[in-house]
Structure formats: structure tokens, C-alpha cells
């Protein structure tokens, strides 16, 4: 993206603050869910920034922040190899099985 990478040399050029991914637990009993990202110099600041940015309306009871650089993600190119093999393993789903009439608590 060279078109977008000509900084104008603003004074005091600190290194850009790293990117953090933010996960919020909306309520007790729910898993943390990814809600977005933000920049902060360190984890302590990232956590506070996340609180102010993503829970202004009581959206959460718990927050995780994670350096975006620490995430290893699967790529779209690997999508078939990663996920298609699961497609024919229908026997992993309970609906695959016929329950004989009269059998309870299954």
C-alpha cells in the first residue's frame, strides 16, 4: 500500500502505538466476544482505553485485550483445507442419529 505510506513527518514522531484486539464479556455466563480494536502503548493503557471505547453503554462486565501481532490466523487460501474436511463428518452432530420411538432422555 505504498500509496498510503508517506508520513508527513509530524514532530516528536514516537513509534506508532501497537494495535490491540478487544474482547468483551457482555454478561456473566457469556463468552468474551471480539468487539473491535484500538491502539495503545502498552497493555495497561489498552485495557483502560478498551473500557472507555467499548463499554460506554454498559456493554460488558469483563474485558480482554490482546496484541493484534500475537494472533495467528488462518488464511482464506487455507479455507478449504481447514474447514471442508469437517463437512462430511455429519456423524458428529446429534441430528445424525435416529432415536427409536419411546427412548427418553437421549
Amino acid at each position: 500500500m505504498s500509496e498510503y505510506s508517506e508520513p508527513t513527518g509530524q514532530p516528536g514522531g514516537a513509534p506508532p502505538a501497537p494495535l490491540w484486539e478487544v474482547f468483551v464479556r457482555a454478561r456473566r455466563g457469556l463468552a468474551h466476544t471480539h468487539v473491535g480494536s484500538l491502539h495503545a502503548a502498552d497493555a495497561e493503557l489498552a485495557l483502560r482505553n478498551a473500557r472507555d471505547l467499548y463499554t460506554r453503554r454498559q456493554e460488558g462486565v469483563s474485558i480482554w485485550v490482546l496484541p493484534a501481532a500475537a494472533i495467528t490466523a488462518s488464511s482464506p487460501d487455507e479455507k478449504d483445507a481447514f474447514f471442508d474436511p469437517a463437512a462430511d463428518k455429519v456423524y458428529r452432530h446429534p441430528t445424525f442419529y435416529e432415536v427409536p420411538e419411546g427412548a427418553a432422555h437421549l
Binding site: E21, E59, G60, A68, A69, A73
Partner: peptide
């Protein structure tokens, strides 16, 4: 590593 957003920022909304 931004495709974490694949998980969907609002696919599972915070039920606000």
C-alpha cells in the same frame, strides 16, 4: 492479523 474481525464484531451483538 485483522481478519479476527471475521469473527464478527456485531455478528454476536452485545445485545445493547
Amino acid at each position: 492479523m485483522r481478519d479476527l474481525l471475521l469473527a464478527g464484531n456485531l455478528l454476536h451483538p452485545l445485545e445493547i
